[in-house]
């Protein structure tokens, strides 16, 4: 059988203080994605290799890794694409590594939370009064930004995230925009303050790679640019008409 070499960047905090590459040969199968190859290693070669996965259908966002320097979801990236190999597999860039291919997710979730990704309404409508009306066109306004699976690939594509670890980052802004453009939401004022802060959207210098690597076509770069425009308008408004600016 044909085989492919996977060069996996491993990190074992209990043994070594630095990561190191380890080579594994796996049989090549046309139907296999990178994740299948990793599972093969875990089951048949080396049970200590550590990584996250769950849904194996590109929707839970667990399995992001760097494959040949490019952040991808390994459950939807075929081995075949990288023939003849060797294929380099490393944990997502810029994140702190816990072990092998497992990176710290907490900082990312903290940033998401900073963007207040929940519906904020001025007046609470009781559930008994039925649904908020929202036309298909209104839905379309934000739908794209609601498709984010929190896979963090965009963070690993963004050098600004690497240079400024506090930068709120692409997905968090996309999620803020997901609610800002929702016809049911009145919270943009609250989100504005946070996103216009230091480490907010103006840290972004428009490298644009986040949108290229996003597996769900969320276009976080677009979300940020649109926010910059809105942000600038808001700022001018607050200068010209300070009495009208959002609290």
């Amino acid at each position: 059988m044909e085989s492919v070499t996977l060069q996996v960047l491993r990190y074992l905090p209990e043994e070594k203080s630095e990561p190191f590459y380890q080579d594994y040969d796996v049989p090549f199968q046309k139907k296999w994605v990178i994740l299948d190859a990793l599972n093969y290693i875990k089951d048949h070669v080396d049970g200590t290799l550590t990584y996250r996965w769950s849904c194996r259908m590109g929707v839970c966002g667990s399995c992001g890794m760097m494959v040949n320097d490019q952040p991808v979801l390994t459950c939807e990236t075929f081995l075949e694409t990288y023939l003849p190999g060797p294929i380099r597999i490393a944990p997502l860039s810029y994140f702190a590594v816990i072990r092998d291919l497992v990176v710290n997710t907490d900082d990312f979730l903290g940033k998401v939370k900073r963007a207040k990704p929940w519906l904020i309404t001025d007046e609470l409508k009781p559930v008994t009064e039925g649904e908020y009306r929202q036309t298909p066109d209104e839905l379309k306004e934000y739908k794209q930004y609601s498709m984010c699976i929190n896979c963090m690939l965009c963070y690993s594509a963004c050098p600004i995230v690497g240079l400024d670890p506090e930068f709120v980052g692409p997905a968090a802004v996309a999620l803020a925009q997901r609610y800002n453009y929702d016809s049911r939401d009145d919270g943009h004022g609250q989100r504005n303050k946070i996103l216009m802060d230091d480490d907010g959207i103006y840290s972004c210098t428009l490298v644009g790679e986040c949108s290229v690597v996003c597996p769900k076509a969320v276009d976080p770069a677009g979300a940020i640019q649109r926010y910059k425009v809105t942000g600038a308008v808001e700022w001018w408004k607050s200068v010209v008409m300070p009495w009208k600016s959002d609290k």
Partner: peptide, 22 residues
């Protein structure tokens, strides 16, 4: 129905009819 409406009030992007209803 109450539970699904509650989710709608929390922002779930349910698909809609042209008139904006569920």
């Amino acid at each position: 129905p109450k539970e699904l409406l509650q989710l709608e009030h929390w922002g779930c992007p349910w698909s809609r009819e042209p008139d904006g209803s569920i």
